[in-house]
């Protein structure tokens, strides 16, 4: 079983309580069509489990294959620096067909962020280090493509349709509840 080497930490984007029963970590790429599909699945999963689940998204942009993946990841990080990570995350996936500089600016306006500041941040590659750190950590944890999920620190190697992910998470919960302190 492949394990997540980099534990959830202060640099992560986390949705859900720290003491949730389950932690679901996704390594994803905003331009990857499979990740676009997975985004809808994760939304349903989060709704189903509510406060019992903590979701973490880490960047794994395949920049050689996807021209706008890095820009999208850095745009999400920019929004995150202004407290709007998840809003931007959702908008990027919702507009996956239109990724590019013009969309990034439009989404910044939409969220009440400064488009010129985003433009400058992209120009300066201000968030590149964070994105690269996510990518490197992913490679060392056995992320071989996108999306890759880890459930309570163990890589989920099965399919990621809603029933598959639901089942895998329920199994993980079953395992931990048997080992309660």
């Amino acid at each position: 079983m492949t394990k997540l080497k980099l534990p959830v930490n202060a640099d992560d984007h986390v949705a859900g309580p720290a003491d949730a029963e389950v932690t679901l970590v996704e390594y994803g790429d905003y331009e990857c069509p499979h990740c676009g599909r997975a985004h809808g699945v994760v939304k349903r999963i989060r709704k189903h489990f509510g406060e019992r689940l903590r979701f973490v998204f880490r960047n794994f942009p395949l920049i050689e294959a996807h021209a706008n993946a890095e820009g999208a990841a850095e745009t999400a990080e920019f929004a995150g620096a202004h407290g709007k990570f998840w809003e931007m995350h959702d908008l990027l996936f919702a507009n996956q067909q239109r990724l590019g500089g013009a969309l990034f600016m439009e989404l910044a306006w939409k969220l009440g962020l400064s488009a010129p500041a985003l433009s400058q941040a992209l120009e300066d590659r201000a968030f590149e280090t964070h994105v690269r750190a996510d990518f490197s950590g992913g490679v060392r944890s056995g992320v071989n493509g996108t999306p890759t999920f880890f459930i309570n620190g163990t890589r989920h190697d099965g399919a990621f349709d809603y029933p598959d992910l639901l089942h895998a998470i329920n199994e993980a919960i079953g395992m931990t509840s048997g080992m309660e302190r």
Binding site: C32, P33, H34, L62, E64, A65, F135, N144, G145, T146
Partner: peptide
């Protein structure tokens, strides 16, 4: 045919 296959991954890494 897959995106993010082995060779593609190595190109990124």
């Amino acid at each position: 045919p897959t995106c993010g296959d082995q060779i593609g991954l190595y190109n990124e890494v």
